[in-house]
Design a protein around this nucleic acid. Structure first.
Lengths: 169, 169
DNA sequence: AGCTAATAATTAATATATTAATAATTAACA
DNA sequence: TGTTAATTATTAATATATTAATTATTAGCT
């Protein structure tokens, strides 16, 4: 078979590994981590959004999103609200401070994005985007939330509890 | 501009989000996490490899790799060795137990990979792979280890120290 | 109404990511 | 040769990912 480094997953990871640092540098200028940026980026377009949809739109897993929203709230950038009609649901929105950040961050991000876009000619870019969209669309079924027919799943033997690092043998 | 969800980074993240769970389920059957799998996958092809190269080949950042190797070592799957010629360098290799895992894990992984490959016709797949390789090759310069001419970098104001989660306002 | 199952957010526990700092070692060179 | 700079792995501190468990609430049914 082909080399491990040329497998599709590693190519995807490598692309992100190469592309994201320059964006993260921008986020960091404004004291934002990447997940925090993603949350704000979505809130800038949705007066208010359900916690669950926010997790889906940002691809930040719900348990992580709890902490991300916590820290954005501590920073005065977002607010929580529990639904009155169904008290299980939580809605999130940006504060005025949070919204104000858009005008500061977006210009630099859009400039970086244009640079990124310019690295590939129209045909390559189109082929790349098409392939990615197809992948995401093709098997959303079993990949997104695990349908219900999982694998046999043998008893997983744990490899490595923790602690101890002798120089070697 | 386009929708956030259709930006290249989000498309890359979404592709991984859709593709990886089925692989991780396989790794989990053998008590392996994804980074642990990546390390073993590389060690199966390199009798011995320098710590630094292992980090590059697996795309596991060095500080994380320390712990990953720790746990694999605790599980009896890999061994460390400090170079005699240059005692700064560490070499890692799989134990016999670690090597034995290859025959157990690879079949399932390769089957899953063939399924993945079958989701796109040759042309789409080729366009996708080409685009990804170009991306990775094009700006390895500034993305990989940050050349040396960074951005102005304003004073980053921290957004959210931590703790406290009042229901809302 | 009352019981049970389903849903939504959260907590818990562990592993990894990220950035900066540290310790040990080696290279460079005055 | 001795002092300083560069390299390499590691530690430290914080944030996020991942999976399972928990809590609160609502839906479904009898």
């Amino acid at each position: 078979m082909q080399d491990f480094g040329d497998s599709l997953p590693m190519l995807l990871y490598r692309a992100l590994h190469v592309v994201m640092p320059r964006f993260r540098a921008i986020f960091a200028e404004f004291g934002l981590t990447e997940p925090q940026w993603r949350v704000l980026r979505v809130l800038w377009q949705h007066e208010e959004i359900a916690f669950r949809e926010l997790a889906e739109a940002t691809l930040v897993p719900a348990p992580s999103l709890v902490g991300v929203v916590d820290r954005l709230h501590a920073g005065g950038l977002v607010e929580r609200r529990r639904s009155e009609s169904d008290r299980r649901n939580v809605y999130v929105r940006a504060t005025s401070t949070g919204h104000a950040l858009e005008a500061e961050v977006m210009p630099a991000v859009e400039a970086a994005y244009r640079e990124l876009r310019a690295m590939l000619d129209d045909e390559r870019w189109g082929g790349l985007v098409d392939g990615l969209k197809l992948l995401a669309a093709t098997n959303t079924t079993s990949g997104d939330d695990a349908g219900d027919d999982e694998r046999p799943r043998t008893v997983p033997r744990r490899h490595g509890a923790n602690t101890s690092r002798g120089a070697s043998s």
